[in-house]
Structures are given as structure tokens and as C-alpha cells.
Amino acid sequence: MKITDEHVATLRAQLSGDTDEYARRLDELVSTETQATYTTLITAAFFEAVDRRFVINGKTAGDREIIDFVATKREINPIAAERLDPVIAEQVLAHALGKGSIPGDIDSDTLMETQVLLLAALIGEADLSESELEAFLAKARAEADEHLD
């Protein structure tokens, strides 16, 4: 299944901060396939956001920047600080940048929760406009579509 507009609208509602819309649309994704496709769209959006933030002119940032980023986000958001494990967050960022792998002992829910928190932090730091957000979603959708076949 491909990423549908429903999936993109759900994600747009989440990234735009319309928590109510995001909650309503998320509740609409009931099927496992729709959930898997939507989780794939979230992963593609996460990779795209990581690439925009830590890859500059084809160069990937170092671990120092990853660590500092995680620390900073956990500092400004106390709820996220409780829910976001810094080690797992750094490992997920490093894995997104191609520097390592995600340890196997990390479950899917923890892994997906970390990606959603980091994606919200990256998008919230980028402070994208709607157009930019639409472009971002389009590219994420495309990326997700590549891996959903």
C-alpha cells in the first residue's frame, strides 16, 4: 500500500501542532496495513528531517552535535525528557545518519516513540512554514513510497 493523503494529512496535523486533528486522524488508522504505512511515512519524514539537520553539504555531523541536540531537546521539554532516552535517541540519530545500527534489544514501540519525539523536535526547531511543511511531507511521502512497495 502506498502512502495516502490520509496518512499525509495525519502527519501534517501532527507536525502542525493540531493535536486534536492529529488525534482524530490517528484514530482513523485502524488497520495494521494503514498503521504500517503510516509508520513508514513517519520513518521517512524522520530520515528527511535528520538529513536536513545533520547533513550539510554532503557531510554528516559528528557525534558531538548529536549529543548536544538530544541534550538540548530533553532540556526544553520536560515531558520529552522523561520519555526520551538519550542513549536510544543518540543511537537512532546515528543510525539515521548511517553511523551504526540500532541495537536489537530496543523494541518497536520504544524505537517508534523515539523517532516520533525526535521528528517533532526537529520539525519544531525548523519552524517550517506550511509550504515548507508540504514540501517536506511530499519528500517524506516519496521516500516512504520507495520502501513500501
Binding site: 488525534a23 513508514t40 518497536s108 517508534m112 523515539t114 516520533v116 519525539l117
Partner: peptide
């Protein structure tokens, strides 16, 4: 990752 739909809800 696809199985981690619960985690998406927890991160809201």
C-alpha cells in the same frame, strides 16, 4: 518500526 504503532501514540 512498522510494529511500533503504539509508540507513535505514546509520543503524541
Amino acid at each position: 518500526l512498522q510494529a511500533g504503532m503504539d509508540g507513535v501514540k505514546k509520543a503524541t
